[in-house]
Structures are given as C-alpha cells and as structure tokens.
C-alpha cells in the first residue's frame, strides 16, 4: 500500500514521456509537406518588423539569406511564457489561460527544484544544510504560487466554458471534465499544502524518495494520506495530458517551426530535392474521374499525363 503513490507516479511520468515521444515521432515521420508559411515570420530579422520575407529581395536566390535564430527563439519564448497570440487576439481568455499555463510552468519548476535539492543534499552533504532552508522557502513559494495560479486559471477557464455562448456549441463533456480534473487535483494540492505541508517538506521528501527508490510513506495519518492522494492525482493528470488535445505543446512546436515559419528555400541540388522525389513517386489512390489514381499512378504520372486521358466531373 505505501508504495502505491510512488508506483502511480512512476507510471504517470512514464506514460507522459512515452506519449510525448510518440507524438513527436508521429509528427517528425510525416512526409515533407508543401510550403505553407504564414507571415510575419520572426527569423526574417529586420524584415519581420513589417512581416516581410526574403522574397522581397530581387533575385533573392543569388543573395545570402539572413536567418535570425535568436529572433525566432525570442518569439517562441515569448509565446510559450506569455501566450502572446492569445494576449493580442483574445484578452478575455488570456486572463484565464495565462495564469493557468504559467502556474503549470511554476509547478514543474518547483518539482525540478525539489529534485535538485534532493540531489544536492545527497552530493554536497553537510555544506548543503547552510542553504537548505532558503532552498525550501524558494520551493514553497514557487510551488504555492504555481498551484494557486493553476487552480484559479482552471476555475476561470471553466467559468468561461460554461457561460460564454460563443463556446457552448463547441464544448464537449471532456472539455469540462479536463478542467475539473485540474481543479480537483490542484485543489487537493492546495489543501495539502495549507493544512499539512506549508513548507513543502513532505512533497520534497516524496520527490527525494521517488528518485532514490526509497518507497516509504513521507508521513503518517491524514498528512501522509493527503500527500499520497495528491501525488496520485498529479501523476494521473500528467499521464492524461499527452493523450488528449492538451498535447498541443508538442503540436505547437511543429505548427510553428514546420509550417508557419518554415520558409527554407529549395535551391537546385539542395537537400530537399531528395525528399520531394520521394513524395512525388508515391502512388495515388484518389478516385475522382479526372484522377483515377487506383493506387497505380504516381504523382509524377498524374502531373504529366495527357489531359485527354482525364475523365470529367459530374
């Protein structure tokens, strides 16, 4: 029994990692698609100010291309941390979504701090005790603010989901369920924190035990039970997120880097030509009269066949 919260946490993290990796693998194994960028593209350096691209340059293919990776990273960073697009286009939602997401980042940071603290205590030995107190305060601050923000953000998002007529038609039971899952989980975490673990010592010990494989309860009685339930809830939530559309943190990377900002030119003899040929030689099964691919004709066959062979649309 005492091992259950640890086992659930191991399983939760494992499912998260596997599911995220599977999603990354799925997107990266997809064939190269057509160029479909959307401006502004931030790596276009000074042109990005007006949304311009290197295509504004006469005979651009004869000139060196200036790509600012730092501008791209900055734009990505601002988007991840501040949810800039939402801030610009949907302020009402941003007031709810920003604390929710920022709270999740803080919760994750607090967990990393706990793990780091455990490792440092192990390796630094006695000298660690001098800073251990301050470290714990930092953990408590980050974790408490994080959990509070997630809780309030999720409440706000739920309130909007349930009351905004613009969203009602599109809302599914799962949308409501997902938010309730966050509210319950982080509600539990907050109660545990306020009532039993104001300095997050028990939580830190739990993380320490988890890393050390020392699967014993961190406390007895109600405190131990609350820590165990919170850990189980957090772990289950962690496993659940990447199995739903909430894995958009993975998809967003591809949406931005592979689609919206992908303006890499295909110069003659360049590396993309091989990928293009691989795509064009695939067999097509589209069945409309003007195509009749039948799984026999390749894209090259279709693009170059005599028009007199095409059938007519109805």
């Amino acid at each position: 029994m005492p091992m259950i919260p640890y086992l659930v946490t191991y399983a939760g993290v494992a499912v998260f990692v596997v599911a995220v990796l599977a999603r990354i693998r799925m997107f990266s194994k997809m064939p190269m698609h057509l160029r479909w960028e959307l401006y502004p593209v931030p790596h276009e350096k000074e042109r990005a100010q007006h949304g311009g691209s290197y295509l504004e340059e006469p005979e651009w293919w004869k000139k060196p291309r200036h790509v600012s990776k730092s501008a791209e990273m900055t734009a990505m960073g601002r988007e991840i941390v501040f949810l800039e697009a939402l801030h610009e286009h949907n302020r009402k939602m941003w007031w709810r979504s920003f604390p929710f997401h920022f709270g999740l980042y803080l919760t994750f940071t607090a967990t990393v701090l706990m793990a780091l603290g455990a490792a440092l205590a192990h390796f630094a030995g006695g000298s660690w005790s001098a800073v251990a107190g301050a470290w714990q305060i930092l953990i408590a601050l980050v974790a408490a603010i994080g959990a509070g923000l997630v809780f309030l953000g999720a409440l706000g998002l739920l309130q909007r989901r349930l009351t905004d007529p613009d969203l009602a038609d599109f809302t599914t039971a799962a949308d409501v369920g997902n938010l309730l899952f966050f509210i319950v989980t982080f509600g539990f975490a907050l109660v545990t924190f306020v009532a039993f673990d104001p300095r997050f010592v028990l939580a830190s010990e739990f993380v320490h035990n988890l890393l050390a494989g020392h699967l014993v309860p961190v406390a007895s009685g109600a405190a131990g039970a609350m820590v165990a339930v919170t850990a189980c809830l957090l772990a289950t939530l962690t496993a659940y997120i990447p199995l739903t559309h909430m894995a958009h943190f993975v998809a967003k990377y591809f949406a931005y880097h592979s689609v919206r900002w992908n303006d890499e030119p295909n110069l003659p003899g360049g590396p993309r030509e091989k990928l293009i040929l691989a795509n064009l030689t695939q067999k097509v099964s589209w069945a409309a009269p003007h195509i009749q691919g039948g799984g026999e004709k390749s894209w090259v066959d279709l693009a170059t066949e005599d028009f007199s062979q095409y059938g007519e649309h109805k």
């Binding site: 997809m30 057509l34 479909w36 592979s258 695939q282």
Partner: peptide
C-alpha cells in the same frame, strides 16, 4: 502520406 503528403502534417 501517399495520397496527401502535401498537407498531412499541417
């Protein structure tokens, strides 16, 4: 991927 490599990922 064969029929719609053009837009599968987006």
């Amino acid at each position: 991927g064969a029929d719609n490599w053009t837009f599968l990922q987006p």
